[in-house]
Simulated assay, not measured.
Amino acid sequence: MEGNSILHAFNNIYFAIFALFCFKLLIKISLALLTHFYIVKGNRKEAARIAEEIYGIAPGSWADRSPLHEAAFQGRLLSLKTLIAQGFNVNIVTIDRVSALHEACLGGHVACAKVLLENGAQVNAVTVDGITPLFNACCSGSAACVNMLLEFGAKPQLESHLASPIHEAVKRGHRECMEILVANDVDIDQEDTQHGTPLYEACTYQRTDCVKKLLELGASVDLGKRLDTPLHAAVRKSSAEVANLLIDYGASMTCRNAEFKCALDLAAPNSKMGKVLLLREGPASLAQLCRLCIRKCLGRSCLYVVHKLNLPEPLEKFLLYR
């Protein structure tokens, strides 16, 4: 009898906890609906107050995109100045911590970004995804925005867990933004765990101008992504121009990656890239050619092998007259 009473008491406790959970969930759903209603009606301040209670957002933040965000993103300078004059906080953010300055830089609107900064916008604000206004400026390719952010104290060299502006500039082929960052002491060989070095990123996206400039500025030609070198990346993308450029600056053709493959191992058989690499290797590549011949054409004559492999003319002559 006593055991039944204890079991009944525990059941009541579990039921009470479940009922309390459902009640809190119902309140949150109701407040979320009420927030949406206020936003639709245009009463964003009341929506913000409710959102702060629901999500625990710091005071002064808004749960949705504000008119300030929209004006900054669309480059409407007059509207932006009017909103600031009306008392809008320049540092209000969305739930994802996106500020109006983020939006202005993403759109490349340097005048709007300047007004926000002059009115106290946080130059190094970070979104939940680790995005800064400087990253967005590099994304848009606005060298003017990049320069202005740096003048207002933006950090060009960021912590490893944040999105890297120089990698974004290189990825999109914005060479001028990249040069500005390097001139402001950004590590030219900074290795991002996801993207490798800026040179590796440039080779991956076949940004020849950026590759050339990075090499001219002193980027290490063999530093890439872990054991993968920039030359590995260029060969994977079949970019003969980039590969030649890297080799001209001393890229090693014998470096092996985590799969123990050198650049030539990654080139497709009989491809233009393979021929380029063989030519650049010169006579030193004969040993590898012989191995390839043995695998492909056992028992055949050397003339047959040369014809079958469709080698470039200098190597063809070299083989036939040895």
Rank of each mutant, 00 (worst) to 15 (best):
M1Y: 05
I6P: 00
Y14A: 13
A16S: 15
I17W: 10
I17S: 10
K28T: 13
L31M: 11
H36R: 13
K41W: 04
R44Y: 12
R49P: 00
E53G: 04
G56P: 03
A58L: 12
W62C: 15
W62D: 15
S66R: 01
L68W: 04
A72I: 09
A72N: 08
L78H: 06
I84T: 09
Q86F: 03
F88M: 14
G107M: 02
V115F: 04
E118T: 13
N119R: 14
A121N: 09
N124Y: 01
N136S: 14
C145A: 11
N147F: 01
N147C: 10
L149V: 10
E168L: 02
A169D: 06
H174K: 10
V182A: 14
V182G: 11
A183C: 02
V186Y: 08
V186W: 10
E191C: 09
E191N: 02
G196E: 06
P198A: 01
L199N: 07
D209G: 07
V211I: 14
S220H: 12
V221W: 03
G224K: 04
L231R: 00
A233R: 04
A234C: 02
K237P: 00
A240L: 02
L245R: 12
L245M: 15
D248G: 01
M253E: 06
F260A: 12
F260E: 10
A263F: 06
D265F: 01
K272N: 14
V276G: 03
L278D: 01
S285F: 05
I294D: 11
G299C: 07
S301M: 08
C302I: 15
Y304Q: 13
H307A: 15
P314F: 15
L319W: 13
